[in-house]
Design a protein around this nucleic acid. Structure first.
Lengths: 146, 146
DNA sequence: CGGTATTAGTTTGTACACTAATTATTATGA
DNA sequence: TCATAATAATTAGTGTACAAACTAATACCG
């Protein structure tokens, strides 16, 4: 295996760049989301529910690419914040219907300012961000066929 | 604010794509790192130390873009695994010198197979991955001037 | 020189991400 | 019909990432 190029520099690793980029961008959201009492993962859950509700836990977990084990306490905290309600489904008592409260629905209007503020903070063109986003979904898909 | 474009679709968010891409790629490492008894963050620490040792905690934290609060228990566990040693610096007793053990140094040889295996799993060209990596560092830098 | 500010690393607390196990409900097939 | 397999969501356990607080050592400046 002497012909394996030495690719062990930390900054050579795409996984390292992905991890740092993810964390760095998410850290920009923190001060913006804090006044709404939301963490970034909670914000993503809200985005999913603003898009469509009511939803099953399993359905949300799939859309958010999370394990239900992660989502369960996350939803619990959102419910405790009064943004989300969870009710046992009547047709299938194993399932929960997760929906927004009125408060949760109204929050969408305020949340509309968030993406432009982040884009502003980054100072990158929409083109560039769009290209990045596409290549990210490219690698996500590649990782699922691996 | 009626002229703010509605950018609240979950999949429109670069941050979501970043989070999922990061997690997805990192999940590919898990079965590969498991036989070495390493988690992905621990692997990154090892990469940093293989690059240069001994190191201060603060120095490692900066290179890994981690908080010392995160790195401290992480190093503790690596020390417990026998891969890393931590000694109080003699010139400045506040500081630790973090170095590899012989076992830790030897692990580098086995680790050389890891990046090619991941690249193989992803089935993406080196060109494409390199372009991605560059744009990721681009956004990392942008987030730090924000 | 010595009191105070700063620094290095750790601990505590909270949230999250994954794996494994658990409980209750529903689907399946003999 | 009924025992068993599968499913939905939760809980428990481990590791990690960040923020705040803490302890001990060093730097600084009057």
């Amino acid at each position: 295996m002497t012909d394996i190029p030495d690719l062990l520099g930390l900054e050579d690793q795409v996984c390292f760049a992905l991890a740092i980029a993810s964390r760095s961008v998410i850290s920009l959201y923190r001060p913006i989301l804090e006044p709404y009492g939301l963490t970034h993962p909670q914000y993503l859950v809200m985005l999913a529910l603003w898009g469509r509700e009511p939803r099953r836990v399993k359905d949300l977990a799939e859309e958010l690419r999370l394990e239900p084990a992660t989502l369960s306490p996350l939803l619990k905290r959102l419910e405790a914040s009064g943004l989300v309600a969870r009710h046992r489904n009547e047709q299938d008592e194993r399932a929960l219907d997760v929906s927004l409260t009125d408060t949760g629905r109204r929050l969408r209007d305020e949340a509309r300012t968030i993406p432009p503020r982040i884009i502003d903070k980054l100072g990158m063109s929409l083109d560039e961000l769009e290209r990045l986003r596409h290549s990210l979904w490219r690698v996500i898909e590649a990782s699922h066929t691996a």
